[in-house]
Simulated scan of single mutants.
Amino acid sequence: MSRTTYALRPTVDAWEWQLRGSCRDADPELFFHPELERGAARQHRDAAALAVCAECPVLRQCRQHVLAHREAYGVWGGLTEDQREEIWAARTDRRRLRRAG
């Protein structure tokens, strides 16, 4: 028997948390900006999406997923696209510093 088989599990177990997301009952357009949306309109839409996330019972799992899989678009895990980019950039900077040190 392969040593890796212990890590395999049914797909439903890995993704079941998504069924409990607060976003499932919200308008999907709230979480993804229309093309060329900028300024106050985008800030208001993001704030409304983040309010849904703030009450979500699976916020932690969603955030872990989106940061691990580098989802580039939309509000996920209580983070906007710009917030995720900042997190990823900070991680990259820390890795560079460790390698240089």
Results as ranks from 00 to 15, higher is better:
Ala26Arg: 01
Ala26Lys: 01
Asp27Gln: 10
Pro28Leu: 09
Pro28Tyr: 07
Glu29Gly: 14
Leu30Phe: 06
Leu30Asn: 03
Leu30Cys: 09
Leu30Tyr: 03
Leu30Gly: 12
Phe31Gln: 02
Phe31Val: 08
Phe31Ala: 05
Phe31Pro: 07
Phe32Ser: 04
Phe32Trp: 08
Phe32Gln: 02
His33Ala: 15
Pro34Met: 08
Glu35Asp: 11
Glu35His: 12
Glu35Arg: 14
Leu36Trp: 09
Leu36Ala: 13
Leu36Ser: 12
Glu37Ser: 12
Glu37Asn: 13
Glu37Ile: 06
Glu37Gln: 14
Gly39Tyr: 05
Gly39Arg: 10
Gly39Met: 11
Gly39Cys: 10
Ala40Asp: 12
Ala40Pro: 06
Ala41Phe: 05
Ala41Ile: 05
Arg42Phe: 07
Gln43Lys: 13
Gln43Phe: 09
Gln43Met: 13
Gln43Pro: 04
Gln43Ile: 08
His44Met: 09
His44Gln: 15
His44Ser: 15
Arg45Val: 13
Arg45Trp: 09
Arg45Ile: 10
Asp46Met: 09
Asp46Glu: 15
Asp46Phe: 08
Ala47Thr: 07
Ala47Ile: 08
Ala47Val: 06
Ala48Cys: 07
Ala48Asn: 03
Ala49His: 00
Ala49Leu: 10
Ala49Tyr: 00
Ala49Met: 11
Ala49Cys: 13
Ala49Gly: 09
Leu50Ala: 04
Leu50Lys: 04
Ala51Gly: 02
Val52Phe: 07
Cys53Asn: 09
Cys53Gln: 01
Cys53Glu: 07
Ala54Thr: 03
Ala54Lys: 01
Ala54Ile: 00
Ala54Asn: 13
Cys56Gly: 15
Cys56Asn: 15
Pro57Arg: 14
Pro57His: 14
Val58Arg: 04
Leu59Glu: 13
Leu59Ser: 12
Arg60Ile: 06
Arg60Thr: 15
Arg60Ser: 08
Cys62Ser: 03
Cys62Asn: 05
Cys62Glu: 02
Cys62His: 03
Cys62Pro: 02
Arg63Gly: 05
Arg63Glu: 14
Arg63Met: 05
Gln64Met: 08
His65Arg: 08
His65Phe: 14
His65Gln: 10
His65Glu: 01
Val66Pro: 02
Val66Arg: 01
Leu67Thr: 11
Leu67Ile: 06
Leu67Met: 09
Ala68Gly: 10
Ala68Val: 00
Ala68Cys: 01
Ala68Leu: 12
Ala68Tyr: 03
His69Leu: 09
His69Lys: 03
Arg70Val: 01
Arg70Ile: 00
Arg70Ala: 11
Arg70Thr: 10
Glu71His: 03
Ala72Tyr: 02
Ala72Pro: 04
Ala72Ser: 08
Ala72His: 03
Tyr73Ser: 14
Tyr73Met: 07
Tyr73Gln: 14
Gly74Val: 06
Val75Asp: 12
Val75Lys: 01
Val75Gly: 00
Trp76Asn: 06
Trp76Tyr: 05
Gly77Phe: 02
Gly77Pro: 10
Gly78Phe: 02
Gly78Ile: 03
Gly78Ser: 11
Gly78Trp: 02
Gly78Arg: 03
Leu79Thr: 14
Thr80His: 00
Thr80Lys: 00
Thr80Arg: 00
Thr80Met: 02
Glu81Leu: 05
Glu81Thr: 08
Glu81Trp: 04
Asp82Trp: 04
Asp82Tyr: 03
Gln83Gly: 08
Gln83Cys: 00
Arg84Glu: 01
Arg84Tyr: 03
Arg84Gln: 02
Arg84Thr: 04
Glu85Leu: 15
Glu85Tyr: 14
Glu85Ile: 11
